[in-house]
Amino acid sequence: MTTGRGTKVALSIFAVIAFLFVYIPLAVVLINSFNAGETLSWPPQGFSVRWWEAAVSNEGVREALVTSVVLGICATAVALVLGTLAALALGRYNFFGRDSVSLLIILPIALPGIVTGIALNNVFTTFLGGLTFFTLIVAHSTFCIVVVYNNALARVRRLGGNVEEASADLGARGWQTFVHVTFPLMRSALAAGALLAFGLSFDEIIVTTFTAGPGITTLPIWIYQNLFRPNQAPIVNVVAAFLVIVSILPIYIVQRFSSADERGGGVM
């Protein structure tokens, strides 16, 4: 297109400012975590790793991290099974009520978290006799289904049904076809979905506050509880900085997956 030179320069400058807007706050968190002072006033009062040491030896932080990881793994496992089943059903069949089913899968993430949160809280406390770690897993699984489903559905549609029909023609049972044909072809899409589901669960705060049993502290809940305690501020900041650094990981993993797929001649 004939975008003028002036327009191009202006757009480039605008984009640079926008990227600064995105990254400066994250950079501030990182820099603040090495702040030597007791309070997080800007500019920092000197370089120190004392708060990193304090955070690593902090019992509460370590327990919260473990809770979040275990919760994420459990919720992802449930979401993987349910999301894959739903994707196979909706990707392969046309049936009455299909649109309603897909809407139902998307709903837990489309509605505000607080609505999902108080709805589940109400039912769990009324019918299950209270909140536990189990209710938390149920809640997280519910909103994680959609990301596995989305990734799996895209793959199921692209694959088409031919390979499965070929497998059945060669005498494979439904289960054999899934294990030897469908699953290997879906593996990278499911891995991407699982990664997203884990990330979603690991970061979730609103539904978590309404469905976690008493005394169960995930990492976001720990941050939230300590955010307004002045003497905890430096440690909260270190945890925040740690999470910023960790957020680069999934991007790297996805990159690896997609390039592995290209090498294998697969589709992504």
């Binding site: 400066i24 706050p25 994250l26 501030v28 968190v29 705060i205 941050i223 955010l227 999470l243 957020s247």
Partner: peptide
């Protein structure tokens, strides 16, 4: 994409510091 993976709470917290 990277900031999307950064924790929601951390991003709000970052703006508190800003």
């Amino acid at each position: 994409l990277t900031p999307l993976w950064a924790s929601y709470l951390v991003k709000v917290y970052a703006w508190r510091a800003m």
